[in-house]
Nucleic acid binder design. Structure first.
Length: 549
RNA sequence: GUCCGGUUCGUCUAGGGGUUAGGACACCGCCCUUUCACGGCGGCAACACGGGUUCAAAUCCCGUACCGGAUACCA
């Protein structure tokens, strides 16, 4: 028998981080067992469901690349079947009409009202004391025929207990006395959640129900429905919940965008990284590995690896650096700097395009951007990916792009960094980080003269022909009299210049870094000079913009 | 209130009768370095509490505390 699982969100908001993890676990289990991963939109409560929300959920799933099998099922489409099922149970005497007038739904604090009511009952309430429970069939039929509104309730037996063996929480038992005669059909004829879920799960031939632990008590109710219907229930696996830092409920109202999947997409997270992070929240393969490819997750996933205790999603709203979970951020950075360049490039391309920093020259006619990357997936002797062996000197070329990305990604955390922190590599229109300017420029007023002078020196050393009189030109390497603007040569020139000025190399280098890139961090400065290229270096060193801020 | 579940470093977790209680993130220090949020090395830091079983308990049992979930004609 093949496994059939489903992810069944109710479309009352975007894809929440907890739901996303539920979807992921269902997906992993389906793929692990060679089964089907189905999607069902639980829009039974039409008043609260929105199309917008359905779209947003689908978007989130698409971003995470959790592709579902078969057609999406909309629960509202099956309302007639649900109704028929309730009527059938009524016919069979397994349910009854409850003519008690419907209570006005308390709008504001439903949750609190319910809790209050439950507390007031002091556990003394007899769940079977409904006056219509044992009403004679004729009388019930007559009242119904007379047009009296009624809800249909399941007739739960007086004595006994429901039991099931949860794949995560083990044997769960509950005395019937704890379960009320649940409503299957509202007095307006509308089917309710528990009925709808059971009917649909049966119809969809679901073999495993993997969902949040908040459904643990619903499961007992649902089992009663399965029993009344004479259908063997599926296997249940309940997941621990994902909590806010204070161990309270994680919600949009309280915590805002951090809980929405699209936030991560928009913040430049890689789906693969976020998936990896999510997989490790409440599940582990009992080993020390942290980074898993999707295939590895699929291969290693098992219900027995799911935890029973809730996990905290850690973040501090008041600290911009920790706006979301540290580990999620680390994982994303780890992916960005170590994943095969071939896989990273399409994402960088999309980011640069969106920021209007993409140049046609980066694309080669009919060749995928990644096509000519040498085996960058191979790890170097230090366990890190090898640096790409391309010629970066033609600034703005395809080779230059790939080389540059590989260099700058080492200090990036999100895809956004390519268009923000790394903006100066791709555009003349970039901002200066005030802190960098203060630390590397204004602190050394001499640089205001020195850096343009350095530009002149570069121009003389690398441009003039014959070589610059009295310069270091003769020491520069190159073939046939050419003096390429490469790391080796740049170092010679900058060192000579520094000695001349009687200052420290760091002062010149850091000043130049800020002038060239607008920021204080980045790869080796010699590489930066090289990938910025001679022309842009001259221009930026001579620019006074940073000094006038 | 009642029912159900949970509790190992700040966080995610490994371990489930004998371990110097392991790893990751975060934090701190040192190294590398012209910078750095890369990298390398190191450090700080945990078995909720009380009983019991046992030669031996973080691990098994009971209780307490705390946390969470559920308790709708919501899903």
């Amino acid at each position: 028998m093949t496994t059939r699982v489903r992810f069944a969100p109710s479309p009352t908001g975007y894809l929440h981080i907890g739901s996303a993890r539920t979807a992921l676990f269902n997906y992993l289990y389906a793929r692990n067992t060679g089964g089907k991963f189905l999607l069902r939109i639980e829009d039974t409560d039409l008043a609260r469901s929105t199309e917008e929300s359905t779209r947003s959920i689908l978007e989130g799933l698409a971003w995470l690349e959790l592709e579902h099998d078969e057609e999406i099922v909309f629960q509202s489409d099956n309302a007639d079947k649900h109704r028929a099922t309730a009527l059938k149970l009524l016919e069979e005497g397994k349910a009854y009409r409850d003519f008690t007038p419907r209570e006005a739904p308390s709008d504001a604090n439903v949750k609190d009202a319910i809790k209050e009511r439950a507390r007031a009952n002091q556990g003394e309430k007899n769940m079977r004391d409904n006056q219509y429970r044992d009403l004679a069939k004729e009388e019930s039929d007559a009242k119904a025929a007379a047009g009296e509104p009624f809800a249909i309730r399941l007739k739960v037996a007086e004595h006994g207990r429901t039991a099931f063996d949860d794949a995560v929480y083990g044997i769960q038992e509950r005395d019937y006395a704890e379960t009320e005669d649940l409503v299957l059909l509202r007095s307006d004829g509308h089917p309710l959640y528990n009925l709808a879920v059971v009917c649909d799960d049966i119809e969809m031939e679901i073999s495993h129900v993997i969902r949040g632990q908040d459904h643990l008590t619903n499961t007992h109710k649902q089992i009663l429905i399965y029993e009344a219907l004479g259908v063997t229930p599926p296997t249940f696996a309940h997941l621990p919940l994902i909590m806010a830092p204070n161990k309270g409920k994680l919600s949009k109202r309280k915590h805002g965008e951090v809980v929405s999947m699209t936030t991560y997409r928009d913040a430049g997270f890689l789906a693969a990284a976020f998936r990896n992070y999510l997989a490790l929240l409440g599940w582990s393969a009992s080993e020390e590995q942290e980074i898993y490819t999707l295939d590895e997750l699929i291969a290693k996933f098992s219900l027995s690896g799911i935890h029973r205790s809730n996990a905290v999603f850690n973040f501090s709203p008041d600290d911009p650096r920790k706006w979301t979970d540290d580990k999620a951020q680390w994982m994303n950075a780890e992916y960005i700097r170590t994943m095969p360049l071939v896989d990273l490039l399409p994402f960088v391309k999309a980011e640069l395009k969106a920021a209007k920093l993409w140049r046609e020259e980066y694309d080669e006619e009919g060749v995928a951007l990644s096509a000519n990357i040498p085996s960058t997936a191979d790890l170097g002797p230090d366990g890190r990916p090898e640096t790409v062996a391309l010629d970066p000197r033609e600034v703005g070329s395809r080779d230059w792009l790939i080389y540059t990305i590989d260099l700058i990604r080492q200090r990036f955390f999100t895809l956004k960094d390519f268009s923000t922190q790394g903006r100066a590599y791709f555009s003349e229109d970039f901002d200066f980080d005030p802190a960098a300017v203060a630390k590397n420029l204004t602190k050394f007023p001499d640089l205001k003269q020195w850096l343009p002078e350095l530009a002149d020196r570069f121009e003389a050393e690398f441009h003039s022909s014959p070589p610059y009189e009295g310069g270091v030109g003769a020491a520069l390497s190159g073939r046939g009299g050419s003096r390429p603007f490469n790391e080796e040569n740049i170092e010679i020139v900058v060192k000579a210049f520094t000695e001349e000025k009687g200052t420290k190399l760091g002062v010149i280098m850091n000043g130049a870094r800020t002038m060239l890139t607008g920021v204080a961090v980045g790869p080796s400065m010699l590489s930066v000079f090289e990938i910025i290229g001679l022309e842009r270096t001259l221009m930026r060193l001579r620019s006074q913009v940073a000094w006038n801020l």
